[in-house]
Nucleic acid binder design. Structure first.
Length: 484
RNA sequence: GCCCCCAUCGUCUAGAGGCCUAGGACAGCGGCCUUUCAAGCCGUCAACAGGGAUUCGAAUUCCCUUGGGGGCACCA
């Protein structure tokens, strides 16, 4: 059995989006499932488009999801270097070798000429592509020359994709693509094939957008005399309008989801299900379970739309599954950041814990834990709401004022202020005042929180504490008074 | 324009000729629970793109059409 070695080979030209990382995840799952090796290789061959912060964003995205790599940046390994910019000598040597063997040639055509040629081709609706002018000229190196691959004319290239089955391309539709650019850097095709070979990659698992360049790669393997790896082209991820995922679809960068308070576990689970499934019912998988069950055979062939509603649901499931302590620890940074600026930091830890225990089962994201609807009123004493909100549909202003006054008096003399004691007092009180429980509780809820939808009243009051609760109810009464 | 890939509920998907009057999940809708909200539970709506062919029998095989997506750079 061949040693399984797979790789994630991102280009540091941007912040990785969910589709990129889903590809990394599938490669990683495959490696972990088979006991193989997962490699990260940085394809930094486009000097002009390289963005400095991309590398760190790539690695951080992987780290966030717990996708660890056996070889690559920071990890090292025997097949390095793992930055293509550090392997230029190899690409230069190998491409020169192809020229010597007659499988590639120097091309002196200027970018201007190529541009013109393409324009002309598009104009007469011909497939764009290099016209092979330099192919048989036997030119040598020159300052602005590139090396092009001499596509074997005639014949077809057929290969078996692990996900799509047999795929055939007519060689005639391929043009003599560039292997080595005039700046001395390799193109993706060249560097990718050389590195996959020397890094002994057994399976190339990548996005479907690479399917049509696979014939080129296969021809390169043949020209070099190497045996190609297996190929598996993953279905791509689309936005809600069925077009390729991009910025206008909202958050696409993986780390945006971290910033929005999604849990890595939920994100991993969700991403795994975008193009892979175990059976007809299982939806929730821990990372270990994913590793145990993942196989390429169960990867789908169909492009998938990123369904944020389902992610939200799943994130909620994972949030509720957390212990209250774990949730508090994870939500705290969001609270520190998301609460209004006038609230004094650092926040009181034990108070935060109590609040978050009430928020946990209601939040779909960690960021929501710091939302005005869920938690602001626990921290600010400026609860702002229209006084009318205090008055139940079937009550009037006077009745509401009475109810607040009576409750305040009873609360004042209550020996304890825990949820059980509060309920034991308030429920009979409602009856005593001839009110339905909900009418009393509703008014108190608004008085204490300024909202009509909150965590359970008694727990909320217990958390707020006696002083704060009573003060707010008094303020509510005053508010009512001011209503005139 | 040319090449390639794909095609089951709105979305993610199960389905590898009879187990399918097509299953699950999210969302939606209705109900239960309940002091509100959330969660939970129960129920409901909802799909095999169309047409041929093969077969006793097709969501499942083949062909065509249509639709969607991807690719066609000195970008990856």
């Amino acid at each position: 059995m061949k040693q399984i070695r797979v790789r994630y080979a991102p280009s540091p030209t941007g912040i990785p989006h969910v589709g990129n990382i889903r590809t990394a995840l599938f490669n990683w799952l495959f490696a972990r499932h088979t006991g193989g090796t997962f490699i990260v290789r940085i394809e930094d061959t486009d000097v002009a488009r390289t963005v400095p912060e991309a590398l760190e964003a790539i690695l951080e995205s992987l780290r966030w999801l717990g996708i660890d790599w056996d070889e690559g940046p920071e990890a090292g390994g025997n097949a390095g270097p793992y930055f293509q910019s550090q392997r230029l000598e190899l690409y230069n040597r190998m491409s020169a070798e192809l020229v010597a063997k007659g499988d590639a040639y120097y091309c002196h055509c200027t970018p201007e000429r190529l541009e013109e040629m393409r324009k002309e081709q598009t104009a007469r609706k011909a497939p764009p592509g290099y016209d092979r002018r330099c192919r048989e000229l036997g030119l040598g190196p020159a300052p602005n020359a590139v090396i092009r691959f001499k596509i074997p004319l005639s014949l077809k290239t057929t290969f078996r994709d692990l996900i799509r089955g047999e795929v055939t391309f007519d060689n005639a539709v391929l043009d003599d693509f560039v292997l080595l650019k005039s700046d001395g850097y390799p193109t993706y095709h060249l560097a990718n094939v050389i590195d996959d070979n020397y890094m002994k990659i057994s399976h190339v698992m990548r996005g479907e957008e690479w399917l049509s360049s696979t014939p080129r790669h296969l021809m390169l393997y043949r020209a070099f005399g190497w045996s190609p790896p297996e190929f598996a082209h993953l279905p791509i991820i689309l936005g809600t309008d069925r077009s390729k995922l991009s910025k206008r679809h909202g958050a696409v960068a993986l780390l945006d989801y971290r910033a929005q308070g999604y849990l890595a576990e939920a994100m991993t689970n969700f991403l795994a299900l975008l193009g892979w499934s175990l059976d007809d019912k299982t939806e929730l998988f821990s990372k270990e379970e994913l590793c145990r069950h993942f196989t390429i055979e169960r990867v789908s062939q169909t492009a998938a739309i990123f369904n944020k509603e389902k992610l939200d649901w799943m994130n909620g499931v994972y949030i509720r599954a957390l212990t209250t302590d774990a949730f508090a620890a994870r939500a705290l940074p969001f609270l520190e950041k998301g609460l209004p600026p006038e609230i004094v930091r650092p926040l009181d830890q034990s108070y935060v814990k109590k609040v978050l225990a009430l928020v946990q089962e209601r939040a779909k994201t960690l960021a929501e834990a710091a939302s005005p609807e869920l938690s602001w009123f626990f921290f600010t004493d400026r609860v702002d709401y229209p006084a009318e909100l205090l008055i139940d549909k079937k009550l009037d202003k006077t009745q509401t004022a009475n109810l607040l006054a009576t409750t305040t008096a009873r609360l004042d003399v209550l020996p304890a202020f825990d949820a059980t004691t509060l309920e034991g007092m308030l429920r009979p009180l409602a009856e005593e005042m001839g009110l339905k429980a909900g009418q009393l509780f509703g008014a108190l809820r608004t008085a204490v929180s300024g909202l009509t939808a909150t965590p359970p009243l008694f727990q909320m009051m217990e958390t707020l504490g006696k002083h704060r609760s009573i003060t707010r109810i008094r303020e509510a009464a005053a508010k009512l008074e001011a209503l005139g």
